[in-house]
């Protein structure tokens, strides 16, 4: 049965990951930080590879590289071409990853699981660290909620009110790194990104209210992950495939809904207004 034994861990951990991805992803989309959300998890892969090479824990390596990547993107991107710097940081970290992988000869299956996730193989002792990191992540977001919101929507106004846009950027990248560290072992570097973009991007097509959008984002992320686990269990296909395609489907659904709503909404307002 898909709800028994080792599968319980998968359901629990994946649900925690989905909640965090939904919340953090909301700000990722709000800030247009898709590239950073792609690069930090992806680059941190090198940390995992390096850590296993020198015999340290994967989580530790992921964490160090995720925060190093976040700091690098934040500091180097401060002036000049932000996106080019992000890209270069990313490929440099990936190249290190390639080097580490080449040093450890039997690493290929682990490369695959780090990049694409291994949610069905989660052990019971992964639940507690994931839960703690998840709570920490949500706590940081809750504390920073209002200044981060203002700084994301109107950076100059936030700046004028004493909310440093640079500090907010670093804080956000830090949250991203934290989310990366906890989620990568579960859904893989390449797919945490799908969850962080697809769900919140879809959510904002359905509502104008920020709080509702965030709640919807979490709901979508949960639905995507649950569907992916169930489908993966039934078909034996990789869970990442279902996460990636379901996220994209959610986004397309949101766009169609927004389009339909805009068309329906336009008709009445096309009539001349009485004033």
């Amino acid at each position: 049965m898909m709800f028994e034994g080792f599968m319980v861990n998968a359901w629990e951990v994946a649900s925690i990951v989905a909640v965090v991805a939904g919340v953090v992803g909301f700000f990722t989309v709000l800030r247009g930080a898709a590239f950073a959300a792609h690069s930090i998890p992806n680059g941190s892969f090198a940390g995992a590879a390096g850590a296993s090479l020198v015999g340290l824990g994967t989580l530790f390596g992921l964490g160090v590289f995720a925060f190093a990547g976040a700091l690098g993107i934040g500091l180097l991107g401060r002036r000049g071409r932000h996106d080019a710097v992000t890209a270069l940081m990313l490929v440099m970290m990936l190249a290190l990853g390639a080097l580490f992988v080449s040093f450890s000869s039997e690493y290929a299956p682990e490369v695959y699981s780090l990049l694409f996730g291994e949610v069905l193989g989660i052990s019971a002792n992964a639940v507690l660290p994931t839960l703690l990191l998840g709570i920490l992540c949500l706590l940081v977001v809750a504390i920073l909620y209002r200044p981060l919101m203002l700084s994301s929507a109107l950076p100059e106004v936030g700046e004028a009110r004493g909310i440093s846009a640079f500090a907010m950027e670093l804080a956000f990248l830090g949250v991203l790194a934290l989310a990366t560290t906890m989620t990568v072992p579960v859904v893989g570097t390449l797919l945490i990104f799908s969850l962080m973009i697809g769900a919140p991007a879809a959510a904002r097509s359905f509502t104008d209210r920020p709080a509702v959008a965030m709640a919807l984002s979490v709901a979508f992320a949960l639905a995507i992950v649950w569907f992916a686990i169930a489908a993966s269990y039934e078909t034996n296909w990789p869970v990442g495939f279902f996460v990636g395609t379901a996220s994209a489907a959610a986004f397309v659904l949101g766009r169609v809904w927004a389009y339909a709503r805009a068309r329906m909404g336009r008709r009445p307002s096309a009539r001349p207004s009485p004033s």
Binding site: F35, H38, F116, G188, L191, F193, I197, V243, G244, S247
Partner: peptide
């Protein structure tokens, strides 16, 4: 929204990659 469009396509494609590699 350009990065978003890019990201969604990327996510879907990587999902496919996971399947093909598997």
């Amino acid at each position: 929204g350009r990065d978003l469009a890019t990201g969604v396509v990327l996510g879907a494609a990587i999902g496919l990659a996971a399947l093909f590699l598997y």
